[in-house]
Design a protein around this nucleic acid. Structure first.
Lengths: 223, 223
DNA sequence: CCATAGCATTTTGAATTCAAAACTCAAGGG
DNA sequence: CCCTTGAGTTTTGAATTCAAAATGCTATGG
């Protein structure tokens, strides 16, 4: 009766996640061919699960599959980011609206805790820790809307933006500014002021997109 | 009859499309197990490309993969639709805004032509022709925004709604109403009146979602 | 010296194979 | 009588195999 059969490890998902991380971490860079054989060896798997994963990543828009010519890491263009900005803006505006209606005190506290940890990373110059927590804060805000679809689409687009690896171009000034924006976001969230929250989220998003675009432009010249 | 023949060139994409159509056509119904072997025979392919396709469809949210227990067609719940409505509303609102700025006269004419063909289907009681054209009109509006990301996300969600097969529950009254809503949409589009367009798109979406939900509720009891 | 045709190698796409897990169903025990 | 048990079958997950396509390399001719 008490059949506590744990769902066995979703093995294939692991590969998708692993390759996705490789892309986000910059181990696989935009425009580059995906070295199928190498990754198989690295993950100690055969080509079958990897190829399944590549199909999924292609549908997420992280890679491009060229028939009989292999897979390439998608190269995000400034036009892509320009397209993404208004869409992410619309999603964040909706999130700002919903989250102020839905969020509990406990959830605010949880986000506040993440925020302070992120502030510590900022203070200590721990950029990767900062980005990790930044990611989680935005995710928690989306989760607190109670709207799974919203969170899913947001994560979908946020993943693509991550490809630009705009963190590489994070000046101290920009970092300080982003941190200040997050202070404002937390403030508005604490007061459940959806108008102000939406406004600050949009400002923050705009700056994030601008930074990403400047990285893309610089990268384009380098090659 | 239902001849799901694939385009020969990129086999795998064809399989994704073919299975997706099977779901939309109601050949594979929510909650049902996906008969792997049967579909392989039907499409005359081996399990490898089918399994790749299933992974992609799972990432689209059309099916659910249970480890070691096969794939099931996702069963859309009313809660899912309630989540989707505000998100699709936000995307359509953005589309209404953008399309009024961007659309050319030629594109309006093209949509108008589709609209009249759809009106003819309505008049003749051709429901499946109506839905096909309805689909294309909404797609063209999204395309005319010039924002590929927006169109992509919209198609993603519209695909899920299609799973509800709400067309089955289309009363003549509802059909007449939907057609009237489309008249208003076309009118607003012709005048590039984004406020009115957004308003009508929202009304139309609300009714579509309500119809879908009523089908889901009815289906839930029957099974 | 360069261009290109022809051959060998590598890479890709998809079928087949193989092991492990789940399901079926009938027999045995409480 | 119902619950458990376990062998046989089916289904699933993933490696391997195989054919076709692309890529690279050499040799030959202009």
């Amino acid at each position: 009766m008490n059949d506590h059969t744990l769902p066995s490890a979703p093995l294939h998902d692991g590969v998708v996640g692993a390759v996705r991380e490789m892309i986000f971490d910059g181990e696989l860079i935009g425009g580059q061919r995906v070295p199928e054989k190498l990754i198989c060896e690295k993950l100690s798997i055969s080509r079958t699960p990897l190829r399944e994963a590549l199909k999924v990543l292609a549908s997420e828009g992280l890679i491009t599959l060229l028939p009989n010519r292999g897979a390439r890491i998608r190269r995000l263009t400034t036009e892509d980011v320009d397209d993404m900005f208004p869409v992410m803006g619309a999603l964040e505006a909706l999130a700002g609206e919903l989250v102020c209606e839905q969020i509990s005190d406990a959830e605010i506290d949880e986000i506040r805790a993440l925020h302070y940890r992120m502030a510590a990373c900022h203070k200590n110059g721990d950029l990767s820790g900062y980005f990790e927590l930044n990611q989680r804060i935005h995710g928690q805000i989306m989760a607190a809307t109670g709207n799974a679809t919203l969170g899913e689409l947001y994560a979908f687009l946020a993943g693509r933006i991550r490809m630009a690896r705009y963190r590489a171009n994070f000046s101290q000034d920009r970092w300080d500014q982003a941190m200040a924006e997050h202070e404002d976001i937390l403030q508005a969230l604490g007061e459940r002021d959806s108008v102000q929250l939406t406004k600050m989220l949009r400002t923050h998003l705009k700056n994030t997109c601008d930074t990403a675009k400047s990285v893309i432009e610089a990268g384009g010249l380098r090659e």
